[in-house]
Design a protein around this nucleic acid. Structure first.
Lengths: 167, 167
DNA sequence: AGGAAGTGGTTACAAATGGAGGGAAGTGGA
DNA sequence: TCCACTTCCCTCCATTTGTAACCACTTCCT
């Protein structure tokens, strides 16, 4: 039913100003998308009872997968981008507009499920069994075949990094 | 019936002087404009019961889409522009005149609909199904084809900035 | 064996849309 | 100047369709 057990993992570098430590989605799961485009958030990634948790859904720029992050995280990131003084005001405006127009809000139901936008599911080939890949405070929803391929292609990079940090 | 669910998204940086946090229209919707040029405001973007909500409608300068914003937001913006001391008094007057002459007022009916100005609809090709694009306290009404094209063209910009902030 | 997690389906309600009726405003003629 | 007529716009009602809440079942883990 699930790929591998993994809970929120605390990240020592990202302790925010407030008391709550920043947590990170981690691990990989295989879940199903039903005919109503619903998908259950892995129980290990839920807060509390898991219902009513707010998420922002974004298509990946190159349209390979669906990016999901906690709503607060999204607000934080977009605020950061909009106050970035290294780009022109015009670019900031364009980006902000793009970002907000592409972002879709979703809250989990009582069973801890999200409803994904129909058009995104179509474009990304998200039907039936999909891969949920966690990391860095977000998770990604992949078409299973695409994920396996991407996985294979990235193995050399992974090997390299693993060597560097002594895995 | 609609593109996808998206609520107002709170913006952490834009907490105004008053207690209410500034909220942002977000997401993209597909709605229909009927024969009387009426369009329903997405329920997620309504305040309260959604009727009697006041909006200002402006054609985009290059006449690509219709800009809609809450009336208070418009008042705030125009007041700000009119007190801008970096331009001449004459320019301020011109600007103000331009702005107010182009702006049309509209209030939502009991079903949460707005009546759009006939001439604007014609000029912008707004008939039948259109795209409602939210962001930054306003939303835009696009001819569907034009919106898809604009979306494609802006993807490189989006992708670039997304990379910068780690999306 | 019990509970929790994941999945499937049904039902009720609200959102979106279409169209009809009534009142105000504008126009023309006497 | 006043009245009749037309036109337009606003309000209200009705229908459809999509969504979200709810319930039920299966499987796996403890």
């Amino acid at each position: 039913m699930e790929g591998s057990g993994s809970k929120w993992i605390e990240h020592p570098l990202s302790m925010d100003s407030d008391s709550q430590p920043q947590k990170f989605f981690a691990g990989e799961f295989r879940h199903a998308i039903d005919q109503k485009n619903r998908i259950t958030v892995p129980s290990d990634w839920r807060r509390g009872d898991g219902q009513g948790q707010e998420f922002i859904i974004l298509p990946e720029p190159r349209f390979q997968f669906l990016l999901v992050m906690a709503a607060e995280e999204f607000a934080r990131l977009s605020a950061q981008a909009e106050s970035d003084q290294t780009v022109s005001a015009r670019d900031r405006r364009t980006f902000s507009r793009q970002l907000h127009s592409r972002a879709k809000h979703a809250a989990s139901d009582r069973q801890g499920r999200l409803v994904l936008p129909e058009d995104h599911c179509k474009e990304l080939g998200l039907k039936g069994e999909v891969a949920l890949v966690g990391g860095n405070g977000r998770f990604e929803i992949w078409n299973l075949q695409k994920w396996k391929r991407a996985q294979d292609e990235e193995t050399p990079t992974y090997q390299h990094v693993a060597n560097v940090i002594g895995l």
